[in-house]
Amino acid sequence: MAEIKKQYADIIKYKTRAYALSVDPPKQSRAVASEMMLPFDLLCDVKKTVIRLYDLVNPFEHGGIARPAIFIINPGGKICYRSIDGTAHRVDLTHVLNFLKAHYDNPDLTNTEPVDKKWIIPSWKTTRQILKNMMLRGNLADWKHYGMFPVSPIIIPLKKLKRKLGEKGKSNDQADSGL
């Protein structure tokens, strides 16, 4: 969010408005917006209808929260860019901005490239909050994202390869059946 705030002038320049959505109630969201001095609106999906609609519910943390993701929707209502992220492994905002720039020049553009992602190293504030969640609330899920850091760089490419091979197998089956 802080990174998006920093780049918001560029985002606006490319005819885009940002809205950040979580399951937090308005009071809590107002506190976050004011503390971070965010230049864009926060949306409050308290009943979790939107995160269910977009199939982005992470049921393992805090009773069900949003899985980090970014969607860019063109004025016609079509999704032209999406990135489904993890807490510790997220889209590189430069990739988003490069897409917006290209989309500004060509409004029919949709992103077909793989999305560049980067590892997020937790700040001291985040680490402190994770420890607090573990000790006071017995919540180990937050820690898992960062604790997996040493093995995730191996697991994620393997998962991608598996998905790619699966897609290739599917297209071969279709070609064999003459579809």
Partner: peptide, 9 residues
């Protein structure tokens, strides 16, 4: 365009 950022909260 509208950019919707889903975040943990």
């Amino acid at each position: 365009n509208v950019m919707v950022i889903f975040f943990r909260g």
